[in-house]
């Protein structure tokens, strides 16, 4: 069990998908102006990213590898991600139409989130088994959600601060993201991985 906990910490903090691997920067910058949006986007991405990592692992292990057609990985994984997004839409719409009405706007954006494809590809490249694929996807998406919420909180405060005119908006956001990435480098070496 300790191994699993360390694995999740390693993927969420030490190898954070946004601030260490630099994936998913578009939603990181675009949907992080308000904490509410960041939470909604983060939760929806967590769901899709974890399921995509699992589905792509299953497709790679049970279809692509036995047929020796691993060169089709990117194409197949993109289709798998689109299928997972559609599945998510259907499921959320069925179980909670109200939630779908509000958070459904994030689902199309997740399809084009490179972090989802990146994590799926990294997962199979690192030859994880099923359990570690689940934890890799879950940990990565938790890390994504964490930095989204932290960054959104920082930007909400920055919106109220007296920032020099030339730094207002995106410039101060990028500077803050850089400082946040430096802070996450402090987690390096936290786990033996």
């Amino acid at each position: 069990m300790q191994e699993y906990v360390l694995f999740i910490i390693a993927t969420a903090l030490v190898n954070n998908v946004v601030l260490v691997k630099y994936l998913g920067l578009c939603p990181f910058m675009g949907v992080s102006k308000k904490v509410d949006s960041a939470i909604g986007m983060g939760f929806a991405t967590t769901f899709v990213l974890t399921l995509s990592a699992v589905l792509s692992w299953a497709l790679d292990s049970f279809v692509l590898a036995p047929l020796d057609v691993e060169f089709l990985r990117i194409l197949v994984f993109i289709l798998a991600i689109a299928a997972v997004v559609q599945f998510t839409e259907v499921v959320i719409k069925y179980f909670s139409p109200a939630l779908y009405q509000v958070l459904g706007i994030f689902l199309p954006l997740i399809t084009t989130n490179c972090a989802v494809l990146g994590v799926a590809l990294l997962n199979v490249q690192e030859s994880h088994g099923f359990v570690h694929s689940v934890l890799y996807g879950f940990g990565s998406s938790l890390g994504f959600t964490l930095v989204m919420i932290v960054f959104a909180g920082l930007r909400e405060r920055l919106a109220l601060a007296d920032v020099p005119e030339s730094f207002e908006g995106t410039p101060i956001g990028i500077l803050t993201a850089g400082l946040l990435a430096l802070a996450f480098l402090g987690f390096t070496g936290l786990t033996p991985q």
Binding site: G40, A44, T50, L51, V54, S96, L99, L103, L135, F138
Partner: peptide, 22 residues
Amino acid sequence: ALTRAAALFYLLPLLGLAAGAM
């Protein structure tokens, strides 16, 4: 209420998935 619902519907199934896998 929205945050609670999002956490419930997006995170709980994943926790079930992770629990079964672990």
